[in-house]
Design a protein around this nucleic acid. Structure first.
Lengths: 213, 213
DNA sequence: GTAATTTATGTCAGTCGATGACAGATGACA
DNA sequence: TGTCATCTGTCATCGACTGACATAAATTAC
């Protein structure tokens, strides 16, 4: 990797760190892009060449996590049922967060604190999650051999996302605590859902528009 | 109600209608607050005395719906199980939308179209839904005789919200079609969830911090 | 009916987020 | 070293949003 690439990566990381620090101390709204840029000694214009918006820099780590979740799901064996695969992907993601080095873990914690204390960033997180939900549905539909427009893949992912979001609580920042909470919720989901609810169904009564066998 | 109140209501409605029309024809981003204000012949400053932001005027109807859903839930008899009460509240809300007069129905449809074609407004909708989710959880917890921090009320509301959001699809704008889609999804949820999953549980194994009998 | 009070609105100035255009600086590469 | 692509800073500008103050209108008191 060339000098240019490394420099860009360093600037990007510096912008994220400076932004998170300022957001934590002065608050998200009270922090201006100019201040972030000044901290890293780049022009405000340069900031917007790295991040599309002030929100973007705060949620860049969250966006990374969403991408990683999708990747972990794609890596799960086809033999797992869709919901199981989603849960395992989530566990893998939490494991990655727990294994992160000091720097990354610190960034993660600061990001969590900032997001949880800023309504606008909570909304942005929802947006990212919803965008990723579409991709998760596509993957689950593929695994089920179903269409992404079918209700079942959407329902499966919706239940998973709601569980994952319920973990995402203002009091839950440490990955270890988050993992515990996830397991509790997954156990509750397990008790509440019928066995085989996330398995492909042979076209029973309510499938009017599907090809006949 | 005095003249002043009526005038304010008319201005507010006019701002919403003008905004939705402009958003539909020119697009949300391309429409400026100045244009909306000019259409209603008030100053831009006055616009911001009625709505906190440009997003606010686009989502004011959505916010109303969320408030109505909460009110409908509160009106359901205590004898209904929490999830049943949530579903019935949703059905009542859709019924209200279907019974709305020409003016309101038109506003509703335009609002739906604008929101579905604008990522920023979809994100804003998520924010409103998530805010309301907290209130729904509180009400469900009350019905269960549980704490709002317990997992069960959060899980019940999360499943409900995910179903409700799955209805909220870009192709689903007409309340009648929406009602049909809701019923399909509720039927799927019914098949997937164990009987009694949303009923209060006697403190089994995993309730360490509750008072002993 | 008029005066006093309250409240809504308009005007103005200003901050901040975000973008396009252009010019200069810097790393990549022959 | 010189050329090229790319990164960066400067400048100008737009649009969302806010505070302060003055004006106009409705409400209330008398």
């Amino acid at each position: 990797m060339g000098l240019r690439e490394r420099k860009k990566q360093r600037t990007r990381d510096a912008l994220i760190d400076a932004a998170l620090d300022l957001f934590l101390t002065r608050g998200y709204e009270a922090t201006t892009v100019d201040q972030i840029a000044a901290e890293v000694e780049v022009s405000p214009r340069t900031f917007f060449r790295y991040f599309a918006s002030k929100e973007d820099v705060a949620l860049s780590l969250t966006a990374d996590e969403q991408r990683m979740l999708l990747a972990e799901l794609a890596a799960r064996p086809e033999s797992e049922s869709p919901f199981t695969a989603l849960c395992q992907a989530m566990r893998s993601l939490l494991q990655i967060l727990r294994e992160a080095d000091e720097t990354e873990a610190g960034r993660y914690l600061r990001c969590q604190k900032v997001v949880h204390s800023t309504p606008a960033l909570l909304a942005g997180t929802m947006r990212l999650v919803k965008e990723n939900e579409r991709r998760l549905v596509a993957e689950v539909a593929r695994r089920l051999g179903a269409d992404p427009c079918d209700l079942q893949p959407q329902f499966i992912v919706a239940v998973f996302v709601s569980v994952a979001l319920a973990c995402f609580d203002e009091r839950t920042q440490d990955p270890a605590v988050l993992a515990r909470r996830l397991e509790d919720l997954l156990a509750l989901a397990e008790r509440s859902l019928c066995p085989g609810w996330d398995l492909p169904v042979r076209s029973e009564a309510a499938e009017p528009a599907s090809a006949p066998g």
